[in-house]
Design a protein around this nucleic acid. Structure first.
Lengths: 209, 209
DNA sequence: GTAATATGTGAAGCATCCTTCAGTTTGAGA
DNA sequence: TCTCAAACTGAAGGATGCTTCACATATTAC
């Protein structure tokens, strides 16, 4: 992420020995597991530390407070997600718009599906803490990648690429999140993906010069 | 809402005198204000009671615990929202699909815009507490209304109305929520609404028999 | 006017949980 | 091997906040 994390949310120190790097990983993993198993409510410092097999004190050597742990957790997740989207955009540069759309939707959809539970759990933690800046930065990064991709399409030139891009990105991401928050059957979800793609393609058909 | 609220979330008693009805209103209003001003974090029983001008004990006469208060708050909000959507659907019965879509989007969009702050604050409270059942019921209620509306269109018959409806509803609601969670300029938001409508219309054009 | 019921009060109990720190263990370099 | 810094420990401090209950006040019914 390109955001300079607020000073208060910055980790206390970086690991210097292999041992402590492992500890840090264990803490992250434990936090995620607790979040998954028992939700945000149960995400207490003691519980995370216990599951990570370390003491609370250790956690406080890396994070000045609980919130910074959660912040870091989200940072990690969004980093990976943004990376995936960017990779897709790079791979689709110069290809037909219809392909771009399919690839973008597929990437995002799969990222959510693969670990729908993690997605949901983390999303809750984002809401609870004030991590809007993180999400904002993620959005900007993705916007840049998709706008560039769309601009490179050989079979379409848009009057206002930025507008078309905003519309597509908002619709796609919003729809996918909405789809996963309702407890739909797998069949319904799959069908929805197809419809979403159809809708985006129809829209682009209209919008291209 | 059609959900039978879980026993643990049911209010303790119903007001019998005008006095206590006013108290209840004050409590709801206070909870909303606290939520708006300082977020979920600050929503403590004492703070809500203070702002409502009653004592904590009074709150506990109506709600068995904090969570049930928040549950009731969301119930109220979703009730109003669902009512608006249903009204729109009724009004649009038998009209051209294009009009239906415009009306549905307009209704939902306006409901969110009117009090975007309330919407956001409440949404957070929904996520934090486990009020998924409430949201689920809301979704079903809206689904029923919109499906009926779509089925009544004179200028379109759909192979699978339920599928088309699911797609439209998911896209529209998802997009709108996503739009309001990013801090977009008013201009961008307005433009997005237009694009969303265009997209939905293009989709329906494809989907109708 | 009086009894019965509804409504309201708020200090105190109880539980939870974040955070610190003085002290111990482990690892790296000389 | 020895020394120093890094890493780790976990009991205890301190703060917050939910919930209760014995009591006070207001309203209604008779």
């Amino acid at each position: 992420m390109a955001v300079a994390a607020p000073a208060t949310l910055t980790p206390r120190k970086k690991p210097r020995q292999a041992r402590s790097a492992a500890t840090l990983d264990a803490i992250f993993e434990a936090a995620l597991q607790v979040l998954l198993a028992d939700g945000m409510r149960a995400l207490t410092t003691t519980r995370v530390a216990d599951r990570a097999g370390v003491s609370v004190g250790t956690m406080y050597q890396y994070f000045p407070h609980k919130q910074s742990l959660i912040y870091a957790l989200n940072e990690r997740y969004l980093e990976v997600l943004a990376g995936k989207v960017e990779a897709t955009c790079r791979a689709q540069t110069g290809r037909p718009v219809a392909d771009m759309l399919a690839a973008l939707i597929e990437t995002y959809w799969r990222a959510k599906t693969e670990r729908a539970d993690v997605t949901r759990a983390l999303y809750r933690s984002v809401v609870e803490m004030d991590n809007e800046a993180l999400v904002e930065a993620f959005a900007r990064r993705v916007d840049a990648a998709t706008t560039a991709m769309l601009g490179s399409a050989p079979d379409a030139t848009f009057g206002d690429v930025r507008m078309v891009n905003l519309a597509l990105v908002t619709v796609i991401f919003g729809t996918i999140r909405n789809a996963f928050e309702r407890n739909l059957s797998q069949a319904a979800i799959d069908a929805l993906q197809v419809e979403l793609l159809a809708m985006c393609r129809a829209y682009v058909e209209l919008a291209r010069g």
